[in-house]
Amino acid sequence: MAGQSDPQLSLFSAEEVEFIAEDEMVEIVPNLRMDALNFVCGDFGPFFPQLATQVPLWLAVALKKRGKCTIRPPQWMTVEKLTQVLEAERDSQRVFEQLPFHYVEISRLLFDHARDDIPDVYMVRSLIEDIRDVRFHKVETNLESLNERAFALKINNLSAMEVNIVRPFVGRALQAFYKHDSPDLIPDQDRVSDRRPQVANNATRRHLRR
């Protein structure tokens, strides 16, 4: 329709993915006394100095920006844990390690706003970047093996950002396979054999794609 040809209509932007990640819970240690907050999105607090409590990331960042709390980095964000994850990621070609669905966004937000609360921040940061690179690379190589019609593809442990990046490509690739492999498109055996041999025979087609 006129003016509405946007193919990305239903995709999430990076900002939107970050917005979703901001609702993940983190632990903070406030340094002020504040009554409980009864938000539309839930009740948090009351807050007492030096008493740790759970709040959504956006609230933690807002308080942190005003110097009202320290943020306790999540358990997976330690040098020890991340080193393990990185090694495991490197060891396996296919399997992805289990990390929080929003690990990219959470760590980004914490690096941006709470770097002084993260022990060994440089090390942690470079580890996360390495993990991200290894994983993206793995995603790319795994995509190369995508070569036939499939109705469902399990992508366990892929994170939100990773999903968001591969979605347009994988979605359309699978749709194309689906379309071209659809039996309705090959109604007439004669025509098929002389016009599109690669579709008529799965083995040949796969071979050609390698």
């Binding site: 469902a152 399990k154 992508i155 999903v163 994988v170 699978l174």
Partner: peptide, 10 residues
């Protein structure tokens, strides 16, 4: 919680 890319119709 399993993540999957899947044919919407299904």
């Amino acid at each position: 919680d399993e993540l999957c890319i899947i044919h919407y119709k299904s």
